[in-house]
Simulated assay, not measured.
Amino acid sequence: MEDFKELTKAEEQIMKELWEMERGFVKEIIDRLPKPKPAYNTVSTIVRILETKGFVTHESFGKSHQYSPKISKEEYKKGLTGKLLTNYFDNSPKSMLSYFLEENRLDVRELDEILSIIERNK
């Protein structure tokens, strides 16, 4: 997990759009963002940072670039969850689940669904 790179909030917002779009130009990403819209240069800079971090790749079309995710949302989720599990729950899914139960972040119906998933994957 030590090589896992976590996204900033701004980077995550851009990645969420790219994951949904699958590919897009900076202008198309901006069009999907909530108001107030960030400046073109801001989004362009964030996308280039994401490319440097290895999250995004691009295809050139003259002077413009079409960006696409290099890492899937599932890959990122797996890394983020692993980091959370390792750093805060001593690598214990049981400890993490107990935390969610104690904090009332999980109700009985959701717990039943989790138990069903466990049964199906035995």
Rank of each mutant, 00 (worst) to 15 (best):
L33N: 08
P38D: 00
E11G: 15
G54N: 06
R105V: 06
L18Y: 04
R48K: 14
K83P: 02
L111W: 05
H58K: 11
L33F: 08
G54Q: 04
I118D: 00
R32K: 15
K9H: 03
E75S: 15
T8R: 13
N91C: 09
I14H: 04
Y88K: 13
Y67K: 09
E102C: 08
K37Q: 03
L84Q: 11
K73S: 14
G54L: 09
N87M: 06
E59W: 05
A10Q: 12
K9I: 10
S72Q: 11
K77W: 13
F89E: 04
V43Y: 02
I118M: 10
T52A: 05
F100W: 06
L50G: 05
K77Y: 14
M21H: 04
L115E: 09
K94P: 03
V108A: 14
D112A: 11
K83S: 12
V108C: 01
L84I: 14
T42R: 07
R32G: 00
V26P: 02
N41R: 09
S92F: 05
S98Q: 11
K9V: 08
V26S: 01
A39L: 13
S60M: 15
N87T: 11
R109S: 11
L33G: 06
V47A: 08
Y99C: 03
G82M: 12
K77D: 14
K70R: 15
Y40I: 12
I29W: 00
A10R: 08
F61W: 15
G54Y: 03
L97S: 04
F61H: 13
S72C: 03
E11V: 02
F61E: 15
L85Y: 13
K27E: 12
N87V: 05
Q13M: 14
I30D: 05
H65Y: 15
R48W: 04
L7G: 01
E102A: 14
E103W: 02
D31H: 09
E2I: 06
K94E: 15
E11S: 02
K78S: 14
G62M: 01
Y76D: 00
D31I: 05
P34T: 01
Y99W: 10
E17Q: 11
L80P: 01
S72A: 07
K9N: 07
P36Q: 04
H65N: 15
G82C: 10
E2D: 11
A10G: 04
L106A: 02
V43C: 07
E12V: 05
F55K: 03
P69L: 13
S64G: 11
I114H: 00
V56A: 06
L97W: 09
L106F: 03
M1W: 09
S72L: 12
E20T: 09
L50P: 00
N104V: 06
S64L: 14
S98V: 07
E103N: 12
N41D: 09
W19I: 06
F55G: 02
P38C: 02
A10I: 08
V47E: 02
K83I: 10
F61D: 15
T42K: 06
S68I: 05
I29H: 05
S72D: 07
T81D: 11
K16H: 11
T86W: 09
P34W: 05
E74L: 13
A39R: 13
R105Q: 11
K35H: 13
F55W: 02
K5G: 04
T8C: 01
E12L: 15
